[in-house]
């Protein structure tokens, strides 16, 4: 794991970011109810935000004082291209989920990421994605009736149509 006497690539930036975030949260916590009373809704948020500011401050201080770097390189060890690409895929998924709907987005996501990670094999990727998606759909949508965003595929109507076909008029 990490040698705690040395800092990794990007560590100062991350810890600095956490410190700034903590400060913002402390201000937001103060805005809830100020120093009104010990039982006010803002009491605990302020206390924990303060703890975040102090601890992240200490962590940052330690980073800055300790200027020795270990041999890590940001793009190789912390955020390699595979991670960046998958993060982008996931972000794309989140953006497309509502307008496009669950089924097409998931299929696209699964197929693209398997193709990317395996560096090819379109037929394999499509088959695996379809089977996996079908399983997820059956478990979540049909058994657990989780209503994922339908988007462009009118799955509720299709399900009802299938139901009518097999069960007669339900």
């Amino acid at each position: 794991m990490h040698d705690k006497r040395m800092r990794s690539a990007g560590e100062i930036a991350f810890n600095g970011g956490m410190f700034v975030l903590s400060l913002v949260l402390l201000v937001a916590a103060y805005a809830i109810s100020g120093f009104e009373s010990l039982s006010s809704p803002g009491a605990l948020p302020m206390a924990v935000a303060l703890a975040m500011v102090v601890s992240s401050g200490l962590i940052l201080l330690d980073n800055v004082r300790n200027s020795r770097r270990d041999g890590t390189r940001f793009i190789r060890d912390i955020l390699p291209p595979a991670v960046i690409v998958m993060m982008l895929f996931v972000a794309g998924y989140a953006v497309l989920l509502v307008p496009l709907g669950f089924l097409p987005t998931s299929l696209l996501f699964l197929a693209l990421s398997i193709i990317y990670l395996r560096r090819g094999g379109i037929a394999y990727a499509l088959t695996v994605s379809l089977v996996a998606l079908l399983l997820v759909y059956v478990v979540f949508r049909l058994v657990f009736t989780v209503l994922m965003p339908a988007g462009i595929v009118p799955e509720a109507e299709i399900l009802a149509a299938i139901g009518r076909m097999f069960g007669g008029a339900e």
Binding site: V90, A94, S113, A132, V146, L147
Partner: peptide, 22 residues
């Protein structure tokens, strides 16, 4: 290469399923 995309997909569906909230 297959397991990781699957875990990601399951995580998304699972998070959505808790309270049906995007």
């Amino acid at each position: 290469t297959v397991l990781i995309p699957l875990i990601l997909l399951l995580s998304i569906v699972g998070a959505y399923a808790v309270n049906n909230a995007i």
